[in-house]
């Protein structure tokens, strides 16, 4: 009986430790984010690092976001057509593809793809800088790592992600259009008219705001895990994995919260 009690205590203790570690990690990331925001509004600002990050994060993510969007838009058109056929509602394909892309799939899938590409690359780069003492060297050269490394990346991701989402939305709708007109027999002019008529400005705007939030999350998690990387190759590998997993989960969770805020009131 005593042994069972001890085993139960140990089991509950392990769960408690995990819960406390999880909460502590959330607290540390929140503090890191607040520190990044504070450094964003106080100088100095490093424009060269910002523009380099803008190109790395924004420009070089375009192909992966575009490819994801075009196939998603096409698949969405096929699914809605097949599902709508059950209720003789095939005509809703253009409007549902458009709304689905700009409200949800564009920002979320774009965010996840950028998380995979950018959070991993930031975490690996900053993690390597940490283990090779480059971050210590920055400090000895009177340069704050937060201002020089984190702020340009977070700002670049936050600003470029809405643009990536907008491009992804357009390409996704185009994917739906191509499948709709060439595969499902929709009239091209009718498809475009239905797309435009049913789409509201807020549908697009909410997706762009989500994009900005997801961009912030991706760069924040990449910087946090990179700058707090453990030692050696294993430490950098763990930091990279944590950045991608953390950013992906946080994107999905914040997407739900933002959808609640934007569309249920």
């Amino acid at each position: 009986m005593t042994q069972i009690n001890i085993a139960i205590q140990q089991f509950l203790g392990a769960i408690g430790h995990l819960a406390f570690d999880f909460l502590a990690q959330i607290g540390r990331i929140a503090l890191f984010g607040m520190s990044a925001l504070r450094h964003m509004v106080t100088g100095p600002f490093y424009p060269r690092e910002f523009f380099t990050a803008l190109v790395q994060i924004g420009w070089f993510s375009l192909p992966v976001v575009g490819l994801t969007a075009v196939f998603t838009g096409g698949a969405l058109a096929l699914q809605i057509y097949a599902g709508g056929a059950r209720f003789s509602a095939e005509a809703v394909v253009p409007s549902i593809v458009a709304i689905g892309m700009v409200r949800e799939l564009g920002p979320v899938l774009g965010g996840l793809m950028v998380a995979a590409r950018v959070a991993s690359s930031i975490a690996a780069e900053l993690g390597t800088m940490k283990v090779t003492e480059q971050i210590d060297a920055l400090q000895t050269l009177s340069t704050h790592p937060m201002k020089y490394l984190a702020v340009p990346r977070i700002l670049a991701a936050t600003l470029s992600m809405p643009i990536l989402v907008a491009v992804g939305d357009a390409i996704g709708i185009m994917g739906g259009y191509l499948v709709g007109t060439h595969r499902l027999g929709f009239n091209a002019a009718t498809y475009l008219k239905n797309t435009v008529d049913f789409l509201e400005a807020w549908d697009v705007g909410s997706g762009l705001i989500k994009g900005a939030v997801f961009g912030f999350i991706v760069a924040l998690l990449g910087c946090y895990h990179g700058m707090n990387s453990g030692r050696g190759a294993q430490g950098v590998g763990r930091a990279t994995k944590s950045a991608v997993v953390g950013a992906s989960v946080l994107i999905l969770a914040s997407n739900y919260l933002l959808t609640e805020v934007f569309f249920t009131s």
Partner: peptide, 8 residues
Amino acid sequence: FQGGALFD
């Protein structure tokens, strides 16, 4: 620094 710590 020991490894140089030059910025790549």
